[in-house]
Amino acid sequence: MDRRRMTMSGTRIRFVVGFGLALAFLTVSTGYGQLKVVTTLPDLESIAKFIGGEQVDVYSIATGFQNPHFVDPKPSYILRLARADVFVTVGLDLEIGWVPSLLNSARNAKIQKGGEGYVDASLGVPLLQIPTSASRAQGDIHVYGNPHYWLNPLNGKVIARNILDAFVRTDPDHRSIYESNLKEFNETLDARMKLWAASMLPYKGKKIIAYHNEWPYFEQCFGLQIVDFLEPKPGIPPTPSQLLKIINTMKRDRIKIIVISPYFTTESADLVARSVGGKVITLATSVGANEKIKTYFELFDHNVSQLEEAFR
């Protein structure tokens, strides 16, 4: 009897200790007092981490090697959003296939559109390719303009400012820290921009081909010239006639480079490159596209070095 009582007592102690440890672990791992931030893309995550520093816990739903148009709205993301203080989205309908259903189920008024924690990172970005007419006969068009604006590093400043505004709204006590981090972010971006611009300078005006229309901001920033796309229309896979057209264009204009994103298969690009003696290079569309790209700055380090090597 005594032995049984002792065993029960031991079980209770183990349960209490275990529960206490689990609670302590949860408290530590969730970062008590930090702003919980959820972003759609890792680029926004990288900038939010820089601006928020130790004051924020940031999670990106999409990975850097995933097509951001087609992310599955898994219920596990709803849990993250239900607890979030701030939600940062690229906007411009880039995530229209998955963000609305996640937000509708999040049960969190703070991060709904119009809420104090909702951040449309595109606000204030000078947009490109705003269509004058909207029809799905044109493929996957974005009626508000091309949404891949984070690929111009100069737009990183606007994104950072939008994120800072949300951090200040939801956590005004740490305003000075966020503003100081924003200043440092902008200065770092300025310094790196000088290096990227110098590296890309010899290739100003160079013509290239891209798989999908997601580089206009990068093209504008670095003075490249994207002549055509392997996709006949945005979102429509390459067709034989389109590939033939591209081959003829590349031969005529002596274009040697085809740019592709990590989430597209390379068969059609390889075929065209073989036909014209060109090469296919995979540029990163987001932070985390490969294990070396861990920050927003490294995204451009990688892309600039890839292009330099290809043009050389």
Binding site: L127, I130, Y144, N162, M193, A197, L201
Partner: peptide
Amino acid sequence: VADSLFSLQLERSLQPEPSSIQQQSAPRSF
């Protein structure tokens, strides 16, 4: 010339704060 390209960025950074840029950027259709 890199500095001249940098001046583009400098130009941008000298623009007003994003909150006021919102009014100036291209209209969002529909």
